[in-house]
């Protein structure tokens, strides 16, 4: 086969594979929506522990990483802006820069990345293992809707965790970053808070809440989808890796789209 044909076959295979992937994911979402038929039979007490445990793992256990990264990013942004802005005579815009960089973009993205790499991979691995150990089968034989029982509490926990982590990230980045920046530059605290408050708009609050909602739904949904995929044990790491990479890529795209929607 000629080189051109090989390229054509490769491209065609990739396109078909991509299309099939989208179709399968849409089918998965439809099946989740379909499973909501049995929602009225679901007793909240049966998923309560899962929500608590997932929130603990996704949110509380991720706090040290979130705080650490937020401190570094906040401090860096404030130091850079305070040393560079006066050269252009725009030091009054530090609040705007913080809101734009941290609240609008880095905060949600960094939080999503931490959640995907810690909890997303764990969700995929856990479900895939449950499937291989026939735990999912035993749930189904008990008349338990696996889609609802497995996916729904993880979505709830993920929304709660991402929302809380985003707020904590932003707060730590602002105030922790402010404290760190005091080592190198001096900004009066009232000036700092005033510029920050001036720079905030209602869109920023709405965008934060909306992003936490969308990421909170998408991340567990994608990771659960990949968790249900492996047909054998040796496929588990392959799908865990896929889940992380593809969820990250999708979150980046969604973040860009949301930013365009809100701020363009």
């Amino acid at each position: 086969m000629s080189r051109e044909n090989n390229i054509a076959v490769y491209t065609g295979r990739k396109v078909i594979g991509f299309w099939k992937g989208i179709k399968n994911f849409v089918d998965f979402i439809i099946s989740i929506i379909h499973s909501f038929q049995s929602f009225k039979y679901l007793r909240f007490r049966s998923i309560y522990d899962i929500i608590i445990n997932q929130t603990r793992f996704t949110g509380i256990h991720a706090l040290p990483f979130v705080v650490f990264i937020a401190l570094l990013i906040g401090g860096t942004v404030i130091i850079q802006s305070m040393t560079q802005f006066p050269k252009f005579g725009i030091e009054g815009f530090i609040g705007n820069l913080l809101v734009i960089i941290i609240v609008r973009e880095i905060g949600p993205l960094a939080t999503a990345m931490i959640v995907i790499s810690r909890s997303g991979s764990a969700i995929t691995a856990e479900i895939a293992t449950q499937k291989q150990n026939r735990e999912l089968l035993s749930l189904e034989t008990m008349g338990i809707d696996t889609k609802l029982y497995i996916v729904f509490p993880r979505i709830i926990a993920s929304i709660i965790s991402i929302f809380s982590l985003m707020i904590i990230f932003d707060s730590v980045a602002f105030f922790g970053g402010y404290l760190i920046s005091q080592l190198t530059v001096y900004i009066p605290v009232d000036v700092f808070i005033r510029t920050l408050l001036d720079a905030f708009s209602i869109e920023d609050f709405i965008a934060t809440i909306l992003k936490s909602l969308i990421y909170g739904i998408l991340i567990p949904l994608l990771c659960c989808y990949y968790g249900f995929m492996p047909g054998s044990r040796f496929e588990i790491p392959i799908y865990v890796s896929r889940a992380v990479i593809r969820t990250l890529s999708i979150i980046f795209v969604i973040n860009a789209l949301l930013s365009a929607l809100f701020y363009l």
């Binding site: 608590i52 445990n53 809380s164 707060s171």
Partner: peptide, 16 residues
């Protein structure tokens, strides 16, 4: 765990 999760939800809400 419930207490921790409760605080984890409440504190950011209060901050917001």
């Amino acid at each position: 765990n419930e207490l921790r999760v409760g605080l984890f939800i409440l504190i950011p809400m209060v901050i917001l």
